Simulated scan of single mutants.
Amino acid sequence: MTGDPLDLLGLDDELSPTEQETRDRVRALVDEHVRPHVARWFADGVFPLDLVPRLAEAGLLGMHLHGHGCAGRSAVEYGLAMAELEAGDSGIRTFVSVQGSLAMTAIAKHGSPAQRERWLPRMAAGGTIGCFALTEPGAGSDPASMTTTATRVGDEWVLSGRKRWIGLASIADVAVVWAKAHDPAAPGDRPRVRGFIVPTTTPGFAATPIEPKLSLRASVQCDVVLDDVRLPADAILPEHPGLAGPFACLAEARYGIAWGATGAARDSLDAALRHAGEREQFGRPLAAFQLTQAKLVDMALEVSRAQLLALRLGRLKDAGRLEPHQISAGKLANVRSAIEVARTARTVLGGDGITLEHSPMRHAANLESVRTYEGTDEVHTLILGRHLTGHQAFR
């Protein structure tokens, strides 16, 4: 056997030297700065803020964006980076997704030139942390039912409402908040979803971490209260009003998740394969038993299929041809596969697999959050069902 035994299909041949260099560089960062500490971060329920400058130095914050200090890398390079980060831990990939694919992308796609110039360079450099406040206690899969409001009062906007499960909110310097905006002084104005840039030091903004959690423990998710938060008129994102605004950002995050899940799955398989080769029972290594080999083969096939799907999405995205339903297919299929791989890998590890010395059960726990955020299995199933049948089944 030659090459990497986990690369069943020789997918390295499908990557350019630049893409391989990006993958290897991020893998080395994870090996040095994440793997030695991630079990403790997960056990203690903390996100390592001292990792942020290293992520920024590696060009990983908003790495798919162009200009304003962003790296401007390809969709495939971005995806490979997300896979390597999630091989370390979903919480670390989540930080990069929230910062780059959600908060920074919202400003890049929907902001004014002045907003982009003010915020993006600082966020790319890691000096400013952002969050993306869309989900509410009563509006998760149905963001159109949000109750957070933004009312124009003279030269200001006044925001009021509640948000929930907002990643990074308690450590963020700036929030992109989505609300139903209304200007009573404008004839015929009707409430419409708009984005607002909210410095988190603004009076009336409060973020509280949600605890205790059984998943994404090396990450931060919060409840957010907006109590008559007063903002200047230019805090509104001027482009793409309506739900198309946040949905464009969610598409970026979902694309990264389709890649990230492959990293968690591959790391789980790697842990199981190493353990099976070292652990002996009945005078033989576990890897020599047929049932163990069947598990390893099934996991390896799932990992390879997920990688192929992610790579196809990346090539489509770089060609400007990626469709929303295809992103849903990648997110749904790859996260679902990754969970099964992580769970199966845990069985190969036996009792040792429930400890934080090994990664699969931590990955499995994290992936339960990943399958829920940025669209549940049910939401992506209905998106694909609508594409196949032409019928809207959400309501």
Rank of each mutant, 00 (worst) to 15 (best):
L291F: 10
L332K: 01
V341Q: 04
L309W: 06
A319C: 01
L311H: 05
T292S: 14
K317S: 01
A329M: 14
A306E: 06
K331G: 06
V341C: 08
S337Q: 02
A288F: 12
A306K: 06
N334T: 00
V303W: 12
L291K: 08
G330P: 04
K317V: 00
Q290E: 09
P324H: 01
K331V: 00
L316V: 03
G330Y: 01
S304M: 14
V303T: 09
R315G: 01
L332V: 04
V335S: 02
R315D: 03
E323C: 09
V341D: 06
R312I: 11
A300Y: 12
Q290P: 12
A310E: 12
A306N: 12
A333V: 10
Q326G: 07
Q293G: 11
E340R: 10
R315A: 03
Q290R: 14
Q293N: 13
H325Q: 07
V303I: 15
D318M: 01
A288E: 15
L291R: 13
P324E: 00
L322Q: 02
R312G: 10
R336Q: 06
K331W: 01
A319Q: 03
L311M: 09
L313V: 04
S328L: 08
A288N: 09
R321G: 02
A338V: 01
I327R: 02
G330W: 04
L296A: 14
E302A: 15
E340D: 08
F289Q: 01
R321Y: 06
T292F: 12
F289E: 04
E302Y: 15
R336K: 03
S304C: 04
R312Y: 09
A319V: 08
K295I: 05
L322A: 05
A288H: 11
D318I: 00
S304T: 12
